[in-house]
Design a protein around this nucleic acid. Structure first.
Lengths: 155, 155
DNA sequence: TGTATTTATATCGTTCACGATGCAAATATA
DNA sequence: TATATTTGCATCGTGAACGATATAAATACA
């Protein structure tokens, strides 16, 4: 006698986890061609919007901890797509900046968003249905992301 | 000049990835108390629905590869929540079965689905809005999961 | 000013994900 | 029936995630 609330069919998290993994797999061949992983691509998205950010700002944009981002940035530095320089005002900070190679990747990856977009489109997933999905996911992220901040603030 | 399609705000995958990670983090304290990780919990969900399944069936339910599931099952066996026995009809198969401890965990974790559910509920995420979200995520999973099967079939 | 606290980042250990590869059992085919 | 192919699982290497902890710089405050 399986309880309904334990059925895989009724799990929100499992759906998010699976959809996320499968969609990330769509990125893989497109990115590995340029020596990038998906999280590294996310770092580039952040830096293309605003160059020269400290580690902490990048981590906050991605809802990640610095202990995840730091090694990732170290690998990206080794690959020559970013540089990490000590902050001038604050010597604790590491300012992450795009290299020429990192900037140029935006042009070389220009087809990626469209390729991924077309991979998910189907009868029920259309450009028109995106806003509704985006809103729900944003609400989940806001709820869980904020409650996390509350936690750390109350300690 | 950032292109719109590269903005973090416009990325479906980033939302799925973030929502998945944040929601998985809600599970963490509830599961680690019982020595479980989230992927291990998913294996239990599968086995609670149907006990004694080969590795491959478990992997397929979770949209994972056996090279991810095998080490995970080995850890669960070491923890004493499952057993792995060679298949009788097919000696290549490893049949994964719940131990007494694994079965009992269902009762001990009975509050988990409700605790997680209440963690996401807010003004816009309600029991009424779940079906719409579930349907869209299921469509994404079906589209990407199926196209993966097509691939392997055509090789 | 001297000490305590906070902040920014880094290091470490464990557990996934997953591509690539290996191996043995089962099945297909010559 | 002998050989080729497929199937099911395991091993290996790399790169995340993330809790725990460390370290140095900045800030607060006594």
């Amino acid at each position: 006698m399986i309880r309904e609330e334990f059925r895989l069919k009724n799990q929100l998290c499992f759906r998010l986890y699976t959809a996320s993994r499968l969609l990330t797999q769509v990125y893989h061949p497109l990115l590995s061609e340029h020596g990038l992983t998906y999280p590294q691509y996310l770092v580039l998205l952040v830096l293309w919007e605003k160059d020269a950010q400290p580690v902490n700002d990048i981590a906050k944009h991605l809802f990640l901890e610095t202990n995840t981002v730091t090694p990732l940035l170290q690998r990206m530095e080794k690959e020559g797509v970013i540089t990490r320089t000590k902050g001038e005002k604050d010597a604790r900070q590491m300012i992450v900046s795009l290299t020429r190679k990192g900037r140029d990747l935006q042009k070389r990856l220009s087809e990626v968003p469209f390729a991924v977009g077309s991979a998910v489109l189907c009868d029920s997933i259309t450009p028109e249905s995106f806003p509704a999905l985006f809103n729900m996911l944003d609400d989940i992220i806001a709820k869980l992301g904020n409650s996390k901040e509350q936690e750390s603030r109350s300690q």
